[in-house]
């Protein structure tokens, strides 16, 4: 296996590292997307460890930076961010096609990376599978019951709430947070149904790090309905872990899970053709 560094894309503005094992030319290619503003190595080098493990199994991989993130520059085009994401992902798939012969792809994204993977998987038939880590989620009735009920009967919580002195930071809402408004829940439900209809395999992995809006394995179905029970969908709630998998053992378990899902759905012997 070898890794190669590339500057690529329609304006040669993207930077990425491709892992190119001696795989069959029809292998599914795995592309790991940026998580927030962290460059392509991922939080605590998660993307590096993950792509190398998958390379060892025979999967061609690419970890790259979207336009203006990490080491990638701007394309110079007048495009919305969503258009850039689609065009950059298409450039990334083109790179793996040229160097590993891949025609179908699996996208892996954490947080905003999951949202970007979702956007591409909705519209691109080349996407055979997607791993969404801490992707779209919505507070449901079940969430509220699980979240508030234990607190309601906890006198210490009431005491702390009543006696707490708010700091200036809290009062002003803390530091500014820049977020992309999430898609409406109804839209995401329809998107998932559409992906499944097109034969896309989905793997949703959510962590305890997003427990302010997601707090139980049942919430996958509460959020997105019966489509979560479809055989093409795998869900996993890792309650004890944090949002960026800061502990080494947690990252290993996460990668184990992704590896197992990938091998089950896209075995290397006939990678590219969903099992």
């Amino acid at each position: 296996m070898s890794e190669q560094a590339f500057r690529f894309g329609r304006a040669r503005h993207l930077i990425g590292i491709a892992g190119l094992p001696d795989a069959r030319r029809d292998s599914v290619g795995v592309i790991v997307l940026n998580s927030g503003l962290v460059h392509r190595v991922g939080p605590f080098r998660l993307a590096v460890d993950m792509t190398r493990r998958l390379n060892a199994l025979g999967y061609p991989t690419l970890r790259f930076d979207f336009s203006t993130i990490g080491d990638s520059g701007a394309s110079g085009e007048s495009q919305s961010r969503v258009q850039q994401i689609h065009a950059d992902a298409d450039d990334a798939m083109g790179l793996l096609h040229r160097h590993a012969g891949c025609t179908r792809f699996v996208l892996i994204g954490l947080c905003s990376g999951a949202q970007n993977a979702h956007a591409v998987a909705c519209r691109d038939d080349k996407i055979a599978g997607a791993v969404f880590m801490d992707g779209y989620a919505y507070r449901t009735l079940g969430f509220r019951i699980r979240h508030y009920l234990p607190r309601l009967f906890n006198p210490m919580r009431w005491w702390r709430r009543l006696t707490r002195v708010r700091t200036a930071n809290e009062a002003s809402g803390g530091e500014p947070v820049f977020r992309v408004a999430p898609l409406p829940q109804s839209v995401v439900r329809v998107d998932f149904a559409g992906m499944i209809e097109r034969g896309t395999k989905l793997c949703l992995i959510y962590s305890g790090g997003i427990n302010t809006y997601f707090n139980h394995a049942h919430q996958f179905r509460e959020c997105f309905g019966r489509v979560m029970n479809h055989p093409a969908v795998s869900t996993r709630y890792l309650e004890e872990m944090d949002h960026t998998f800061v502990l080494v053992d947690d990252r290993k378990r996460l990668i184990d899970h992704v590896e197992e899902w990938l091998c089950r759905n896209f075995p290397v012997a006939n990678a590219g053709v969903p099992a």
Partner: peptide
């Protein structure tokens, strides 16, 4: 189309090409 990134070259180097750098 030319961008400033044209002047940036990502590559692996060292005896066994183990090190990554951007020039």
């Amino acid at each position: 189309m030319t961008t400033r990134t044209e002047a940036e070259l990502p590559f692996f180097f060292g005896d066994r090409h183990e090190l990554f750098g951007i020039y």
